[in-house]
């Protein structure tokens, strides 16, 4: 009887979730945003495996969230992905403390044998700087949207972005990229 009631409720709940996005709509959105979100997560985490994991989880949450406009949905996606990555780092930190493995740091994912290309120079910046630069230049989001995604004040974003740009310019110039 309980199973029957559960099934009935599930069917009712299913009919109530009609306002969520449809599969073709999601697929189109995924194809538009997936590659860049993966790039953002890769640059931020410095680990493609973590980026894959977080990307899938972020999309799962977005699908099950109420339907929203394209731009709001994109901001929601980036905010969720950033928060998931933060949780991942916290968990990693706890595990590291637990196992007392001092040498297992964020830098473990860096491939030190790689030639000094744009990506490896970019990875020398802090996580916040990398995220801010990516959101501002690649995603071309507004200060407000970036503040919402990164969980900081809009005024702080301007300062963070200004400093991140200066640091990035300095690093790229030192590596001989772009005009001095």
């Amino acid at each position: 009887m309980v199973a029957g009631v559960t099934l009935c409720y599930l069917t009712m709940a299913e009919s109530r979730t009609g306002e969520r996005s449809s599969q073709p709509e999601f697929e189109a959105f995924y194809l538009r945003t997936g590659r860049l979100l993966h790039g953002y997560l890769c640059r931020l985490s410095r680990d493609p495996a973590t980026a894959d994991e977080v990307l899938q989880e972020a999309y799962l949450r977005m699908i099950n969230a109420p339907d929203m406009e394209e731009q709001v949905r994109k901001a929601y996606l980036y905010r969720t992905a950033t928060n998931l990555l933060r949780d991942h780092w916290r968990k990693q930190k706890r595990e590291r403390k637990h196992w007392q493995k001092q040498n297992f740091s964020e830098a473990i994912h860096q491939n030190l044998d790689k030639p000094l290309d744009v990506s490896s120079i970019f990875e020398k910046l802090s996580a916040v700087d990398r995220a801010t630069l990516w959101l501002a230049h690649v995603e071309q989001l507004s200060h407000r949207e970036m503040a919402d995604i990164l969980g900081v004040k809009e005024r702080s974003i301007k300062v963070i972005l200004f400093r991140a740009r200066a640091k990035a310019r300095d690093l790229f110039e030192k590596a001989g990229l772009g005009a001095p």
Binding site: Q23, E27, Q56, L60, V118, F122, H137, V138, A168
Partner: peptide, 24 residues
Amino acid sequence: DLDAILKQMATEHRPQLPSPGLIW
């Protein structure tokens, strides 16, 4: 220049993403 470098970096990123059907 910085904008161009970052955009170029994003364009060069071509990952093997899981299929949208699988995520759905």
